[in-house]
Design a protein around this nucleic acid. Structure first.
Lengths: 359, 359
DNA sequence: TTGTATGCGTTATCAC
DNA sequence: GTGATAACGCATACAA
């Protein structure tokens, strides 16, 4: 009969030490693989590890954190987890963190400033060692990110250009994406192209538009200002769809001819497609459509939406790596650079060569 | 000039005690609102709270947890966060937990059993006091949920019927949903209805089908077995779409006539719509379509998808409440009942009355 | 290369 | 009503 195991009492370092016949410190050094463990005899290590395993020893994270002053956690603060855009970023973060000693603590601000501030506070209380903020375009961050900066831990923002706030950030190269949109439509023969821009205040929106204009200039394409619409400033998560729908209805009412439509993002494009459909215009036969983001929906609607893909998982991973690097170097912050990742054109069925009579 | 604040040193309970002129115990009792605080003079409380605030005291969660043996956290283990179905469940959980002393620790298993097991372990190591598992239909849980049960903490599963494993669970009433689907189509005049069932092994699939059959029996509707397809058993997250697409192509090849199609879920319906579109059949004019779940995509595709809504946020909230109740009662587990929440029919544009000649 | 002693900040058990 | 004191489990400086 095996030695009677004390009923449900936790196995501590001391138990292991006694059983293995070494002192608690040696056991601690070995099991936590501290630098000093380099000097411990291989036999000793072996023995300690064996008995620890045999006893089913599990270190107490709280005692460990209390003593070592390290939480082994990082905060992940997302503006709105229901934004499909965020999910892959989160996966990139998770995958990059997996295998490191850091556990992500994820909080969802639900597009609410107060909640964001509250959770940031909570994360600091939990002593996270680093912070990743996952932004989306609807969220009016106000001064919140300054608060983030004020906390003296390595922080990085993904999904929004925060270089002006002296915070490191990782985003897609919106300018290049805008350029690609126009290039693609141009190469399909489109010359009368309508555009639905994002809200004016949005950096992303400005950059994408800049890219479109750059291509237009380089190629001699003319973008008729009367065929350019701008989404209103809003905070409602589904506003992109509604905005795209209304902007397109508006465009249709002008009776100006356009054979293609470049939407601010995928949701806007889906709204636009709804409006076109209601007007009896089919995509891509009567009008080609290009989105931006490549959210899952883009692949599942019919016709499949041609779009500019943001490398979301990679963005999450890159941001995480930057934070981990800062952590490894014991720095107090991530370098406040803006990092641009290249977008990719994803071809689906919503774009087609312009038809003969319009060419 | 205010007293010099010791450079960046943490304010501890002791500091507050000294400053306020009371003992650490009293301060602790007051600030953590322990039962004993009932007996502390109101004045004393006031004074202690004031000085704590003035000093900017924040309790050390690790010391607190170490001593009190409580982590104030609950684990949330999700099979696959990229499943749009999960997100609202998570929001329900988050909202219900907000305001309680419990912090959710969210882990995403990425549809991977090993990762699930690893994260479960990790959560236990972090001493979560309760556990919420968010399941989805693709995940082959194997014996994992038995492992969950083995941990002696209140656990509840949302999104999968686990009553047979003696684990509490919360799901939608699939049978009622299936019934509603058929009822809706029947009331629109449809009599030739094709069905794409979910994978056979899936409980959800069986229940939805049972509901459909019940309505058929009650109403005298005949469901032609030749127009019933079953999705293959798969683990790929996008398989629903592909499955729906192929099943529909298959149905079309038979040349059997159907004026409506009931899909296993929304993604299946979207795949089916793609296939119908490719065959030149339009929805809902040539064929009505009903999905199941009401994921965001259902509202954004064109035509908008009529579907059965799972009250996902409520499911998450209900599961959380059950866990909190068990926690409050210091129970070691959630009652192993299956709880069914009612689905709702959401009318959009993918269903229409059957056309004259088919009526 | 290993052991000893101490304290991290808090709460619980008493005693007053 | 309030205070003294002893843990909680671990990691580290220092001694050996």
């Amino acid at each position: 009969m095996p030695p009677h195991k004390p009923k449900s009492k936790r196995v501590t370092l001391l138990d292991v030490a006694r059983k293995a016949g070494f002192s608690p410190s040696t056991v601690s050094i070995v099991l936590s693989e501290a630098p000093l463990s380099r000097y411990v005899a291989a036999q000793t290590k072996e023995r300690i590890r064996k008995t620890a395993a045999a006893l089913g020893y599990r270190p107490d994270v709280f005692a460990r954190s209390l003593r070592s002053r390290r939480s082994n956690t990082v905060g992940v603060l997302v503006f709105d987890i229901s934004d499909p855009f965020c999910v892959f970023i989160l996966q990139g973060i998770e995958k990059t963190l997996h295998g490191t000693p850091y556990l992500p603590i994820l909080m969802d601000a639900h597009n609410d400033q107060k909640r964001f501030a509250g959770y940031l506070d909570l994360l600091m209380e939990r002593r996270v060692e680093g912070l990743i903020v996952v932004a989306n375009w609807l969220f009016d961050e106000g001064e919140l990110l300054s608060t983030v900066k004020a906390e003296k831990i390595p922080s990085v923002v993904v999904g929004r250009d925060t270089s002006e706030k002296e915070l490191g950030s990782v985003i897609v190269d919106n300018e290049a994406g805008g350029y690609e949109v126009m290039k693609h439509l141009y190469e399909l023969g489109h010359r009368r192209i309508a555009v639905i821009r994002g809200p004016d205040s949005l950096r992303d929106s400005q950059r994408r538009w800049a890219g479109m204009q750059r291509f237009a200039q380089e190629s001699g394409l003319e973008l008729d200002p009367r065929k350019v619409r701008t989404l209103p400033e809003v905070l409602d998560p589904t506003s992109g769809f509604q905005g795209g729908l209304q902007a397109t209805e508006d465009l249709l009412r002008t009776r100006l001819k356009f054979t293609a439509l470049a939407a601010f993002d995928d949701l806007t494009a889906l709204g636009a497609m709804r409006a076109l459909s209601a007007a009896g215009r089919s995509v891509p036969q009567d009008c080609s459509m290009v989105g931006f983001d490549d959210v899952p929906m883009a692949g599942f609607c019919t016709p499949g939406l041609t779009t500019i893909r943001q490398p979301m998982e990679e963005m999450g991973g890159t941001a995480t790596k930057r934070m981990l690097d800062a952590l490894a170097a014991s720095e107090t912050e991530v370098s406040p650079d803006l990092q641009l990742l290249p977008p990719t054109l994803v071809l689906r069925d919503s774009t087609a060569p312009v038809r003969g009579k319009d060419a």
